[in-house]
Simulated assay, not measured.
Amino acid sequence: MGEVRIGISGWTYPGWRGDFYPRGLVQRRELEYASSRLTSIEINGSFYSLQRPSSYARWRDETPDDFVFAVKGGRFITHLKRLRETDAPLANFFASGVLALGPKLGPVLWQLPETLQYDAETWDAFARKLPRTTRAAAELAGRHDDRLSGDRVHAETDADRPIRHALEFRSRTFASEEALAQLAEHDIACVLADTAGRWPKVDRDTADFRYVRLHGDKELYTSGYTSRALDEWAERVHAWSETRDVHVYFDNDAKGFAPHDAEALIERVERLGGLVTRTGRRRT
């Protein structure tokens, strides 16, 4: 069976304090706390700006040995450059400290804006640039430009490990057989995004793992998932995990539902016999 990772998108939310985070827990220990309850977390700050190697190293050290982060690719690449002229931006992204996560580096998530329509040539050129191993990523990072220097650069890896990539598109032009076939050709996971009907919800295997983002099924970013909905998602996750690894992240964070829904889904998948890694042990 594949390994199941279930968590949240980001972890620093003031509204969670006194709710998911116990009252009195200092902010600097929130990641430590969240990672003890969940099995993976998406790093969102990397989407908005290049982070520092020291930050990635700190996040690595504050989490359990068996923990995994997904890292969100920079919007400078996806939203501003729109996947074109990305040689230096990609090098800078991987040089900014992503590799400092070491064995805790999970999939890299690329989220495209709704206004970016599918273009086979553009997407193919970008997909071919993505490093598929940490050694390839380190070589790419070594070609960073002068925007990064000194302690802002981490362009090495302690071992050669595979790097997986996932794509969350928001233009319906990507929900075509041609685009999905191209994702499969490059072994890039098609993100199954639940967005209360706002953006495409495409359930298709295009890689050797599954990547799911749950933004809310009734209200985008706001609504929580009912017990019945979580039961249904648990059944789907368990079925997928019979043949591949599965990553699921709750992004319905506005009212604090995300971490509670993630914990509830973990418990349901465990009861079904799914392999969920948490706090140093595997549960079956």
Results as ranks from 00 to 15, higher is better:
Pro64Leu: 10
Asp65Thr: 15
Asp65Cys: 04
Asp65Trp: 01
Asp65His: 12
Phe67Cys: 07
Phe69Asp: 02
Phe69Arg: 01
Ala70Lys: 05
Ala70Pro: 03
Ala70Phe: 10
Val71His: 07
Lys72Met: 06
Gly73His: 09
Gly73Ile: 14
Gly74Phe: 00
Arg75Lys: 15
Arg75Val: 07
Arg75Asp: 01
Arg75Glu: 08
Arg75Ile: 11
Phe76Cys: 01
Phe76Ser: 10
Ile77Lys: 12
Ile77Gln: 08
Thr78Leu: 02
His79Met: 03
His79Asn: 02
Leu80Pro: 00
Lys81Leu: 14
Lys81Phe: 10
Arg82Cys: 09
Leu83Phe: 00
Glu85Val: 03
Thr86Trp: 00
Asp87His: 15
Ala88Tyr: 12
Ala88Glu: 11
Pro89Phe: 03
Pro89Asn: 08
Leu90Met: 10
Phe93Ser: 04
Phe93Glu: 00
Phe93His: 06
Ser96Glu: 07
Gly97Thr: 12
Val98Leu: 12
Val98Ser: 04
Leu99Ser: 06
Ala100His: 02
Leu101Ser: 11
Leu101Arg: 02
Leu101Trp: 06
Gly102Leu: 05
Gly102His: 10
Lys104Ser: 09
Leu105Asn: 11
Gly106Ser: 14
Pro107Lys: 14
Pro107Phe: 09
Trp110Arg: 05
Gln111Asp: 12
Leu112Lys: 11
Pro113Thr: 00
Thr115Pro: 00
Thr115Ala: 13
Leu116Tyr: 04
Tyr118Ile: 05
Thr122Asp: 01
Asp124Arg: 15
Asp124Lys: 11
Asp124Asn: 12
Ala125Gln: 13
Ala125His: 14
Phe126Asn: 01
Leu130Trp: 11
Leu130Val: 12
Pro131Ala: 07
Arg132Ile: 15
Arg132Pro: 13
Arg135Ala: 15
Ala136Asn: 02
Ala137Ile: 04
Ala137Cys: 05
Ala137Met: 00
Ala138Asp: 02
Leu140Ser: 08
Gly142Gln: 08
Gly142Ile: 04
Gly142Ala: 09
Gly142Leu: 08
Asp145Pro: 06
Asp146Gln: 07
Arg147Trp: 14
Ser149Met: 09
Gly150Phe: 14
Gly150Gln: 09
Asp151Gly: 03
Asp151Gln: 11
His154Asn: 04
Ala155Lys: 03
Glu156Ile: 06
Thr157Phe: 01
Asp158Met: 04
Asp158Leu: 05
Ala159His: 08
Asp160Ala: 01
Arg161Thr: 10
Pro162Glu: 05
Pro162Ala: 06
Arg164Cys: 05
Arg164Pro: 02
His165Asp: 09
His165Glu: 12
His165Phe: 02
Ala166Ile: 04
Leu167Phe: 05
Glu168Val: 06
Phe169Met: 01
Phe169Lys: 04
Arg170Asn: 13
Arg170Ile: 11
Ser171Trp: 09
Ser171Val: 05
Thr173Pro: 01
Phe174Pro: 08
Ala175Lys: 02
Ala175Arg: 06
Ser176Ala: 06
Glu177Ile: 13
Glu178Arg: 11
Glu178Val: 03
Glu178Asp: 14
Ala179Gln: 07
Ala179Val: 08
Ala179Ile: 12
Ala181Phe: 00
Gln182Cys: 01
Leu183Trp: 03
Ala184Trp: 09
Ala184Thr: 14
His186Asn: 14
Asp187Gly: 15
Ile188His: 06
Cys190His: 10
Val191Pro: 07
Ala193Pro: 09
